[in-house]
Design a protein around this nucleic acid. Structure first.
Lengths: 161, 161
DNA sequence: CGCATTTATCTTGTGCACAATATAATTTTG
DNA sequence: CAAAATTATATTGTGCACAAGATAAATGCG
């Protein structure tokens, strides 16, 4: 292994990025059969989580709120919300107070789906089969990385080349 | 509606899955401007990493090798490899010993690109700005999760709530 | 007020991911 | 050996992600 790249800098297994990439897809794959029973995809589930949360607190949800929370832009959200709308889980309407904005409202079916979703996290954690404190620590580390990346928006301050 | 989920089980921020999802996209976004300079995307970069690794060790690479290593199927790899081929970084040819298999060979340009890629990890780590030991620990945790998910293929044994 | 600017969303185009299916070559079996 | 089963890749269709550009409403300013 002492060849051109002996230090293994370019070794796939050494890269945190690949671990993140592969773990994310593996977790999403675990969600799939569970969410299939609710008739939604994983990104759609994340959107529904925010909508349920806002509904519980009597908050109105605009598309931009979803974008801020999930870090997604309208190019992703618009078609996704249209699909959820077609499935009858929510409705989209212009905000009378600001005709540029679209208000996303859960339908009765969308609200009712929360009951069916309530055991999704438990079923997934059961799949993951790791002690909760380890998962909590991992989540906090991931949040730290996320914060770091979103705060330090120096997108190439020092190009060491 | 019984309890409006005040325990926060369905709270977005409590979910490790979202941390993973958001962190992965944030890291990929950091790679983007760096990899743009090489003219490749992030999944293409991962493929190239494997190809460079095999080239260093004099190993032949089949499409199936890439799939095993990156956990991707041919539906993802075939078009991705075609794009890399169009960019002149690799060539695809049937294995004479088994006409079902396709051998992926780096072109001179593909091999040469490794030199330009050598500082990519350093530039990204600089962006991440976290102590290496913390990143190493995070990577190991992610690998543990990945292993768990790939080993325990009990895809819904118990729905414990 | 009128016009430039900003803001919120939509649209278009590219590139993954992945399920499902197709095709063709190889291996296994009877 | 020939039919059946397996294996490797390719194709098709759906659904994200995200960049870039378009549209229309709201805001700011002289």
């Amino acid at each position: 292994m002492n060849e051109p790249d002996s230090s293994g800098i370019l070794n796939l297994d050494n890269q945190i990025c690949f671990a993140l990439y592969a773990a994310n897809r593996a977790v999403t794959a675990r969600y799939r059969p569970i969410l299939d029973q609710l008739g939604i995809t994983y990104p759609q589930y994340l959107v529904m989580l925010v909508l349920w949360e806002h509904a519980r607190q009597g908050q109105v949800t605009h598309v931009s709120d979803l974008g801020r929370r999930l870090r997604l832009d309208s190019g992703t959200l618009t078609p996704l919300l249209k699909r959820l709308s077609e499935r009858g889980l929510l409705s989209r309407s212009r905000d009378p107070g600001d005709e540029r904005s679209v208000i996303i409202s859960l339908t009765d079916a969308g609200l009712a789906l929360e009951d069916q979703a309530r055991d999704v996290p438990a079923r997934l954690l059961c799949d993951l089969n790791l002690p909760p404190e380890r998962l909590g620590a991992l989540r906090d580390e991931l949040r730290a990385v996320l914060e770091m990346l979103e705060a330090g928006s120096a997108p190439n301050a020092r190009s060491s080349l």
